[in-house]
């Protein structure tokens, strides 16, 4: 079909054909993308102990105790902390950060890798939320993302028993960073962080990042 005419649809058969054609021309996964998704599926399937949103109770225990303490400060703060969804600039964010520090310190060495992965996911989410809202991401958040990538790659527990589990998460966060870097070329630090993320993935045995061509991310309104 050319740009010069607007298609007409006068019967159901034509509508069906148009739908078949439109959905048929939809996004196709490249071989590399298919392999990446398959590797991530394996990682997720074989690592039920690695938390992303629902950490094991003993990992979450210190946070739970603190949650009770903060409960005195108000139910709302507890709910927001539990959701892990505060972002820089919000009144409860410093409290959540302090809690994370305590949580990390209370976590046994053998479980540190899991907590670091959860924190890394939160930082990437915060950066995305702020950038998409047109706000500035504080430097300490960006630095922490970079440091967490390095820490997970250097963590011996991640390297020994947890390699298979940590890798798909790192690959996923690296992909998110790559898209953020592409979307926000003005944020110069993102390039460096992406390099650190790439090195971390390679260190854990993952494939290096292949740049996504700008036109490959076709975003449509969901239907």
């Amino acid at each position: 079909m050319k740009l010069t005419r607007r298609p007409t649809h006068s019967n159901l058969g034509q509508i069906e054909s148009a739908l078949t054609e439109m959905f048929g021309k939809g996004p196709q996964l490249s071989t590399q993308a298919r392999q990446q998704i398959w590797r991530r599926a394996h990682g997720l399937a074989h690592t039920p102990t690695v938390p992303q949103h629902h950490p094991a109770w003993f990992v979450f225990y210190p946070a739970f105790v603190l949650l009770l303490v903060f409960g005195f400060l108000g139910g709302y703060s507890g709910v927001v902390f539990a959701s892990g969804a505060t972002v820089p600039g919000e009144p409860l964010y410093p409290i959540a950060r302090q809690t994370e520090t305590v949580w990390l310190n209370f976590t046994p060495e053998s479980r540190r890798c899991e907590v670091q992965l959860v924190l890394l996911e939160r930082r990437v989410y915060e950066a995305k939320a702020l950038l998409d809202a047109g706000k500035i991401v504080p430097n300490d958040v960006l630095q922490e993302i970079e440091l967490l990538f390095i820490a997970v790659a250097d963590d011996t527990t991640c390297q020994s028993t947890q390699t298979a589990s940590a890798l798909p998460y790192l690959i996923s966060y690296r992909a998110k960073l790559a898209i953020l870097t592409h979307r926000h070329p003005g944020v110069s630090q993102l390039g460096g962080i992406l390099e650190a993320a790439n090195s971390a993935v390679i260190k854990l045995g993952g494939a290096p990042l292949e740049l996504i061509p700008p036109d490959s991310r076709r975003i449509y309104q969901p239907i």
């Binding site: 939809g26 196709q28 991530r40 599926a41 399937a45 992909a175 309104q221 969901p222």
Partner: peptide, 30 residues
């Protein structure tokens, strides 16, 4: 994989979310 990915893509409208969800579907399959 392609059918699942397309379904996810058209329901979410986001390639990144579609890839994440496709991985989760096949993790559940495994």
């Amino acid at each position: 994989v392609n059918a699942i990915y397309k379904f996810m893509f058209y329901r979410t409208g986001d390639t990144m979310a579609a890839e994440d969800l496709t991985a989760e579907v096949f993790a559940a399959m495994l």
